[in-house]
Design a protein around this nucleic acid. Structure first.
Length: 227
DNA sequence: AATTACAGCAACCGCACATCT
DNA sequence: AAGATGTGCGGTTGCTGTAAT
C-alpha cells in the first residue's frame, strides 16, 4: 500500500493566497500555535492543504521575515557557504535570520548566480571557467589572475571574516569540485548581528509580542487544539 | 500604445527523513 | 521491524510586473 497524499487534493484551492486567507491562517496560527499542519487548514477554515499553509507561514507570514536583497556582506557569505555546502538552502538560510531557504534560493538563482557568471566563475564549482568554456564574453582578456569568489568580492578583512565563518574541518577542501559534507555535521558560523530565532524550536516558543500590533487578531486561544 | 522578452518571486510537487504506532 | 504519518527540503514552474522594442 502506497503512502497516502498529505491531504485530499480534491476541492482544494491552489495558487496565490489572498489577504483573507492570509488573515485566517495568521489568526489561527497565533491562537492555536500547537496544531499540526494537517489540521490547520480544516480548523482555520481554509481550502488549502497543510503543506501549503506551512509554506505560506514560513515564507511569507512569519513576523521576523526580512524582505529585499541581501547586503554585500551577506551575499559574500552566501557564496562562501554555497561553495562549501552546495544547494543546501536550509542550512545556508539558517545563517541569515529572517531569511527563508526559499528566499536565499531565489536570491541565489536571480542575482548571485548571474553575478558569478558575469565574473567568469562557475556558480556550481565556484571556480573560474576555463577560457574555452567561459560563457561570459565580457571578461575575455580582462582577468589574467585566477580568483576565487571571495577574492573577487571581498576585502582582506572581509575574507578573513567569511572564511572563518565556516568550519573548515567539516567540509572537504575547496580544491575539489565535489562537495563531501557528512550529513548533519554542524557548521560553525558566527551569528549575524541580528539575534537569530531558532527555527528548530517549536513555533509556539517564538516571541509573539511582535504580533500585538496586528489589530485584526482575535484574543481567544483555543487550548483544546494544543498538543 | 501594443506587444514581446525578461526578471523576480511565490508557490507547488515529489521525495527524503524523523517519529509514531 | 515495518508501515503510517507528519514535516522538511530542494527543484521547478508559473504568475506578475517591468523594461525593451
Amino acid at each position: 500500500m502506497g503512502r497516502q497524499p498529505c491531504c485530499a487534493k480534491v476541492g482544494l484551492k491552489k495558487g496565490p493566497w489572498n489577504p483573507e486567507e492570509d488573515k485566517k491562517l495568521l489568526d489561527f496560527l497565533l491562537n492555536n500555535p500547537l496544531c499540526c499542519w494537517r489540521l490547520v487548514p480544516k480548523l482555520a477554515g481554509l481550502l488549502r492543504c497543510g503543506k501549503s499553509c506551512r509554506l505560506r507561514w514560513l515564507n511569507y507570514l512569519r513576523p521576523d521575515l526580512k524582505r529585499g536583497l541581501l547586503s554585500e556582506s551577506e551575499e559574500k557569505l552566501v557564496i562562501d557557504l554555497h561553495a562549501q555546502l552546495g544547494n543546501r538552502w536550509s542550512k545556508i538560510a539558517a545563517q541569515f535570520p529572517g531569511r527563508t531557504d526559499n528566499d536565499v534560493k531565489n536570491i541565489w538563482n536571480t542575482h548571485i548566480k548571474k553575478k558569478l557568471l558575469k565574473m567568469g566563475i562557475d556558480p556550481i564549482t565556484h571556480k573560474p571557467f576555463s577560457p574555452s568554456e567561459n560563457p561570459s564574453d565580457e571578461s575575455h582578456g580582462e582577468e589574467e589572475e585566477v580568483k576565487t569568489p571571495l577574492d573577487s568580492l571581498c576585502s582582506d578583512s572581509e575574507k578573513s571574516l567569511a572564511s572563518s565563518s565556516v568550519s573548515s574541518s567539516s567540509v572537504s577542501s575547496s580544491s575539489s569540485n565535489s562537495i563531501s559534507l557528512v550529513k548533519d555535521e554542524i557548521i560553525e558560523v558566527p551569528p549575524m548581528e541580528a539575534p537569530a530565532i531558532d527555527w528548530d524550536e517549536p513555533m509556539w516558543l517564538l516571541e509573539m509580542d511582535e504580533f500585538k500590533g496586528l489589530e485584526f487578531l482575535s484574543n481567544d486561544f483555543d487550548e483544546n487544539l494544543c498538543i
